[in-house]
Write a protein that binds this DNA or RNA. Structure first.
Length: 497
RNA sequence: GGCCCCGUCGUCUAGUCAGGUCCAGGACACCAGGUUUUCAUCCUGGUAACAGGGGUUCAAAUCCCCUCGGGGUCACCA
């Protein structure tokens, strides 16, 4: 119907990529891809004190990981740059100047101390309204000029109209109306002459031709201020959509990094959740396709996503659901993909060379085959393979008990001596057939066979299929462990009998 | 405290705009059973919610009002 949409994600680089921010970025990106629009990344880095280059990088790399690479942004450039607010100061100042000329702004000589005092008194008196009381709003212009000329410190405030109703047409919340009397005369230029966030945002969204501002609900009250700035500047406002907030997993408050480690996107990468699972999960927090669809690929999301089905209510982070989804994604992967997922974790744990040799590759393949159905995130593979790489097995009590059973010694001895040497350790199914026929020949139940062998090989009672374990260890190491287990079993029966 | 947003199973949600097909559906989690050499997967079944109170209506999870609860925001931060 009209020009393609232009959306943006505008984080401030203060340390990490917030999971809620990641979702905001995803929703924006989804819409841009779906409608052939443009996804812009803009750094809101006007606060020099708090911003670091490391934090910028964290945001860039986080978006890369999620596959939400901007069409325009600090790294990729574009026709509406620069895309970092720190580089756009002249632009803001220019518009601020026009606002001064038009009389929309007035100088305010209230000092920080004065304002703090005012606020303290308002709180003490339980005043109905907090905030600036407009004490310099009607200062005589000549007097103002005189004080400025005298070098008196001052900020510039926006003369917010009185007695008007400001209506925000929000795609998710519908029409939200607020009285302009509830909005104080906001500072647009600080005493040091720098512009304030709300001014910068309006100018940027306008200059960058943003058509839809999709952001967290925490910006809802800012929007009314911004609406007034749009009016003062004589610009048309974009369409707004305020997303419900993501709350901490156990309820109270929005996610903060201090209280909730899961607020940081990096955590998910570190724990080894497949990206596509994270994307799927994020999309479903606050949005749903219908009453049953849970698993959706990125392509399906691009096709079906829509703001009209975004919920207005805040949501807790459903961590259990991520674990489940992640497991589903891993199970749907090819063996090669699972290997690739495990690889960095095993390398980091020192269990795999960065450039693995053939034997290592083979072992990785076998581990992947054995654990693919069991693991819910790739990072689990480290502790799950402790038994494989342990120089000395750390036996669980139950496993030890299994080695102490009456038939344990003869089973181990038989498997070690008669079966293992000629069974095909490359082929778990074949090994199982061999073992079964051997056990049957002895009139042994398969369970009686399996338990002591598993105990000797892994020191545990639970884990991958027994013959996957043999395959992972290889013939030689399996034999060594079986022999060691046999010794224990004999010791146990000798001591016990 | 002012202003604003929100309120369906423990959790994520469908249903609310266009009232009946909803003694409320799905998923995760949980519990029970089955398959399996263990675990996991897989299969079957189960527990579990319309925040409360008033209206309107033949009929309300759906519309209106009040209460309660949760959240956001009130910086010369962004």
């Amino acid at each position: 119907m009209s020009a393609p949409i232009r959306v943006r994600f505008a984080p401030s680089p203060t340390g990490y990529l917030h999971i809620g921010g990641a979702r905001t970025a995803l929703y924006n990106w989804l819409l841009a891809r779906q409608q052939g629009g443009t996804f812009v990344l803009r750094m809101e880095d006007t606060d020099e004190e708090r911003n670091t280059d490391a934090a910028r990088q964290t945001i860039f790399r986080g978006l890369d990981w999620l596959g939400l690479t901007p069409d325009e942004g600090p790294e990729q450039g574009g026709p509406h740059g620069p895309y970092s607010q720190s580089e756009r100061m002249p632009v803001y100042l220019e518009w601020a100047e026009r606002l001064k000329e038009s009389g929309a702004l007035y100088p305010c000589f209230a000092t920080r101390e004065e304002l703090a005092e005012l606020r303290a008194r308002q709180e003490a008196e339980k005043a109905p309204v907090f905030g600036y009381d407009g004490r310099y709003r009607d200062l005589d212009p000549a007097e103002a000029r005189r004080r400025i000329a005298a070098g008196e410190e001052h900020t510039w405030r926006l003369r917010v109209p009185r007695g008007e109703t400001v209506v925000l047409k929000d795609l998710i919340r519908g029409d939200v109306a607020v009285s302009s009397d509830d909005i104080e005369d906001i500072i647009l230029l600080r005493a040091n002459g720098t512009p304030v966030y709300n001014l910068a945002v309006v100018i940027d969204d306008h200059d960058m031709a943003i058509t839809h501002v999709i952001r967290g609900e925490d910006h809802l009250t800012n929007t009314f201020k911004q609406l007034i700035i749009y009016r003062a500047l004589g610009w048309d406002e974009p369409t707004f959509a305020h997303l419900p907030l993501i709350l901490g997993p156990s309820g109270e408050g929005k996610l903060s990094k201090r209280k909730h480690p899961e607020a940081a996107l990096e955590l998910y990468q570190q724990k080894g959740y497949p990206v596509e699972a994270v994307v799927n999960w994020l999309a479903m927090i606050g949005w749903s396709l219908d009453d049953k669809t849970e698993i959706m690929s990125r392509e399906e999301l691009v096709r079906s996503f829509g703001l009209d089905r975004v919920s207005a209510a805040g949501a807790r982070l459903p961590m259990d659901k991520l674990d489940w989804l992640s497991g589903e994604y891993i199970r749907a992967m090819s063996l090669e993909e699972v290997e690739a997922g495990f690889r960095p974790f095993l390398v980091e744990a020192g269990r795999l060379s960065a450039d693995p040799n053939d034997a290592e590759r083979l072992r990785l393949r076998r581990i992947a085959a054995a654990e693919k159905d069991r693991v819910r995130r790739f990072g689990e593979i480290v502790e799950r393979t402790d038994w494989v790489f342990a120089a000395e097995l750390d036996f669980e009590p139950k496993a030890l008990a299994n080695l102490g059973k009456a038939e344990a010694a003869s089973v181990l001895e038989g498997y070690l001596g008669e079966v293992l040497p000629k069974t095909d350790v490359e082929d778990p199914a074949a090994m199982e057939a061999d073992a079964r026929s051997w056990a049957e020949g002895r009139g042994l139940g398969f369970g009686k066979f399996v338990h002591p062998v598993r105990a000797a090989l892994t020191g545990r009672t639970a884990g991958p299929g027994l013959f996957d374990c043999v395959a992972i260890l290889g013939r030689e190491e399996s034999a060594r462990r079986l022999a060691a287990g046999l010794e224990r079993a004999r010791g146990a029966s000798a001591g016990g009998a």
